[in-house]
Write a protein that binds this DNA or RNA. Structure first.
Lengths: 111, 111
DNA sequence: CGGCATCCCCAACGATACTG
DNA sequence: CAGTATCGTTGGGGATGCCG
């Protein structure tokens, strides 16, 4: 339970699953779409999601190689929650940012 | 955005906000309710959530001291998503656990 | 193109002890 | 009761370089 929340709760998982919302994507596409993620973290997070059965990894044996990622049925059941979380974060980011600054101004750092 | 997702996506935040779903709770109550969290992590996570304006911290100057935590209006807007995530994790934990074991059995560890 | 391997660092976290 | 302080560990994650 904690493990599962730890995974799906990870910001990268949320963003990746959100990207695969309505279409399959290649590794490079995801890398470009998910701003700020390193190649390493993208690989690792995709592996976790694949391991948990939330997405499929399809290797096309061509040159150059091509790998497609797509949500599984299980992954799709997570979409609603994930999209909702993403939209919440997007909608309230300014409010939260303000709250943080106000809090920091009110609660001086202990020296 | 990443910061926000990192916070609300944290497993502890999800569980804490979920606990405050329909009532205010004391520190000790939360500590007992959120299995596996250390006192330190509970304190830190509550501080983060308070800083972001998702919950309020009310100190009652009594002996023994008493501190109540409650969701703010902003925190309440996060409830639906968080509850949905929690229920998803709970509902699919066995399926995911099976997927992990199957994956681990199929993909041998490199020695 | 889509990785994996390696090195390395630092923030996160647990455990424990102390306090208003 | 509800924290704070300190120490020690771990593992998350960036940077870089090589490979099928």
């Amino acid at each position: 339970m904690l493990q599962i929340l730890g995974l799906v709760g990870s910001k990268w998982s949320i963003l990746i699953v959100g990207q695969l919302r309505d279409r399959t994507m290649r590794f490079g596409e995801l890398h470009r779409a998910v701003k700020g993620i390193s190649q390493r973290m993208l690989t690792l997070t995709l592996r976790q999601l694949e391991r948990d059965g939330l997405l499929t990894r399809t290797v096309h044996p061509s040159v150059p190689p091509r790998v497609d990622y797509a949500l599984t049925a299980l992954g799709a059941t997570l979409l609603d929650s994930v999209v909702a979380l993403g939209e919440w974060a997007s909608a309230h980011r300014h409010e939260i940012s303000n709250n943080r600054h106000r809090y920091d101004a009110t609660h001086p750092t202990r020296t």
